[in-house]
């Protein structure tokens, strides 16, 4: 079968007086080789779900597990109607799993969490409360983190960098426990390994972002799926993310900014070349400065050309990324 999730529509709660009949919450959980955790995870979710006064669904995304995760999900599906699941053909990573879950979700609010029992579903009502207050994105903050120091340190550094380079100020971007208003996150269509940047990306939309401290448990089953190579990738992603947030609507400006230092170098070398000719320094010096002028001048020309091409690329796109702020549009109450 060929599946297309883009057909799934958000169900609007038309009748707030009777919220139990309408799907309000979708809980999206990516799983990769978590056969031991799945059952416990679901029972924890049901425990938390007892307090909900609305209908909810659980979306498990099997990210190409090689163990019996999917078989367990299929078995559990028989007894739990509110469980829905997606199985990937191979391992695509947490971001893709979350994006697929977002596409498949029907609820108005989407909550994501880890499948390894490190997040606690009893925190969900707290996140939802913030959403009800009017926030578009509520991020969890693992204030008391139960991980090895070698995991925590690089993550601290990454958090500090993201926090200082984007408009969004959060303590813990890497926490999987987050709540989103569905439209906000569906419009993002994130790619690569960017789940930690959802709030930063969403800042392009002007989304109202906040954080709440959540509980964090140490890992019980399985192994942690992180390595040193990941850290490098995260930093390259932070760089790409910032470029996109700043310049995807006016890329020429980005390239012009890159070109400015080279323009100064060109003028500097060009001036020296002129001086060398006029004051008749050694012939070697004049040639040296002229070649240097040509090299740096070419860099300027190259950057400006690419800038114009990038402007062309953006204007031929569907421009949906420039219209992202529309999703955070909200009608405000008028006084009579």
């Amino acid at each position: 079968m060929h599946y297309d999730l883009s057909q799934v529509k958000i169900k609007r709660t038309n009748n707030p007086s009777n919220p139990t009949t309408c799907l309000y919450l979708s809980i999206v959980i990516p799983l990769y080789n978590e056969e031991e955790s799945v059952e416990k995870l679901l029972s924890e979710l049901f425990e938390a779900g007892k307090q909900f006064e609305f209908a909810y669904e659980i979306i498990l995304v099997d990210d190409g597990s090689t163990d019996r995760t999917w078989e367990t999900i299929e078995r559990l599906k028989k007894t739990t109607p509110q469980l829905r699941a997606i199985k990937f053909r191979r391992n695509y990573g947490q971001t893709s799993a979350m994006v697929a879950g977002f596409d498949y979700a029907k609820g108005e609010i989407i909550v994501t969490m880890d499948g390894d029992l490190q997040n606690d579903p009893s925190d969900i009502p707290m996140l939802l409360e913030k959403i009800e207050e009017g926030y578009d994105i509520v991020s969890g903050w693992r204030k008391d983190r139960k991980d090895h120091v070698f995991r925590v340190l690089p993550s601290r550094v990454a958090n500090a960098i993201i926090s200082s380079t984007t408009h969004i100020r959060l303590h813990d971007y890497g926490c999987s426990m987050k709540a989103y208003r569905a439209e906000c996150v569906k419009s993002l269509k994130a790619y690569g390994e960017m789940h930690r940047f959802f709030p930063a990306l969403a800042s392009m939309t002007g989304a109202r972002v906040t954080e709440v401290p959540v509980k964090h448990h140490s890992r019980k089953y399985g192994v942690s799926k992180y390595g040193f190579e990941r850290i490098l990738k995260v930093f390259s992603d932070i760089f790409a993310m910032n470029l996109i947030i700043r310049f995807s609507s006016n890329p020429l400006k980005g390239f012009v900014l890159c070109a400015v230092p080279f323009l100064f170098l060109t003028l500097f070398f060009g001036g020296l070349a002129l001086l060398a000719l006029i004051l008749q320094w050694t012939a070697g010096k004049a040639i040296f400065f002229m070649v240097a002028t040509a090299l740096t001048g070419m860099a300027v020309a190259h950057l400006l050309t690419l800038g114009v091409v990038s402007e062309l690329v953006v204007s031929t796109s569907d421009l949906s990324h420039t219209r992202m702020p529309e999703v955070t549009k909200k009608r405000i109450a008028q006084r009579a």
Partner: peptide, 27 residues
């Protein structure tokens, strides 16, 4: 590196809607 920047802009403006995963089963 600046060509990579252009590439990133293309990926973001034209490739965002292409899903990168393939689904084997849905329940």
């Amino acid at each position: 590196a600046s060509a990579g920047l252009l590439g990133e802009i293309i990926a973001f403006t034209h490739g965002r809607h292409k899903k990168e995963y393939t689904i084997e089963k849905l329940i």
